[in-house]
Write a protein that binds this DNA or RNA. Sequence first.
DNA 1: ATGAGTGCAAAAAGTTTGCACCGCT
DNA 2: AGCGGTGCAAACTTTTTGCACTCAT
Lengths: 168, 168
Amino acid sequence: MPESLDFSLGQVNVALTPIERFQEFLDSRGKRFTSQRRLLVETVFSRHEHFEADDLVEELAYRSEEPRVSRPTVYRTLSELVDAGLLRKISLPSGRLVYEHDYGYPQHDHLYCQKCRKLIEFQSDALIQLRAALAEQYQFQVTGHRLIVQGVCLDCRSHRRKRPVDLI
Amino acid sequence: MPESLDFSLGQVNVALTPIERFQEFLDSRGKRFTSQRRLLVETVFSRHEHFEADDLVEELAYRSEEPRVSRPTVYRTLSELVDAGLLRKISLPSGRLVYEHDYGYPQHDHLYCQKCRKLIEFQSDALIQLRAALAEQYQFQVTGHRLIVQGVCLDCRSHRRKRPVDLI
DNA sequence: ATGAGTGCAAAAAGTTTGCACCGCT
DNA sequence: AGCGGTGCAAACTTTTTGCACTCAT
């Protein structure tokens, strides 16, 4: 991953790469930084796209070189990455579960194109204010939120018949 | 279901109960209004709580009286009810998929208590405005949205130790 | 050395499908 | 009669678990 990224994250140590952050997390739990866990974190943070568990299994379980990461270990490790605050799990309107980077990545929400299934990220201060207002009104201790706005993206509205894609 | 409810829904015929609306939908597709489908809709609209597919299977597949509704038919019919616009399917942060009334029920979103798993409904005009702004900014044709704010509800913050509940 | 981690196979959980029989219309 | 619907069993998809062996520390 590009070292130009700024891992600003409040009071958390901001100098760490995701890999280092994961090591720290594992250490704090008496867990070990194995070659499988290393390969998995490196892979996950080598790009920024959203992905599902099975994508990783495909990529890591049958590769030619060692180490490989078996299906159960992929699932186990993804959970750890979520616990460690490195990844976030989101469920799409279709029911698909995908992961995305969370560590050192700004809070955001998504526009979901129901034609091409693309996810577009956006940030909104108004939403943060709304959260605060709700917390106040319902005396609710907010820990997070998930907003997905679905519809049809610009591309799919233009090339309507150019590249047919299947429905959700 | 209480006939005092107002089934206002834009240009759609607003005089219909959910059952009548479902009949209309089935009719328009050349499908039949069978005793299973009737029992299922009646059951679903006899109360307002959120529920999962399996709840219905438990309730309808093993009852003493006829008709019963088998597991596959419950799933098939729930899909039809979603298609008909009577139900909405939402996925909770935990990954659980639940259904809720959509027909004749105002647009709303949820606060989700991660302690007791309760869902609290709320409405927000600000959110509708935000949607419009996003549509404009991204030239995105919005068809819907789903916002879930998670945290801890008032009850769970007060009786913190009174009734222990398991984590998510 | 020793306890955590891994892969394998199997189990679970949730949902869908093929098919023969049933029953509206 | 004929087509849609249903139940049953089985298949499928996705995720989790038990267990013996392996490996990081």
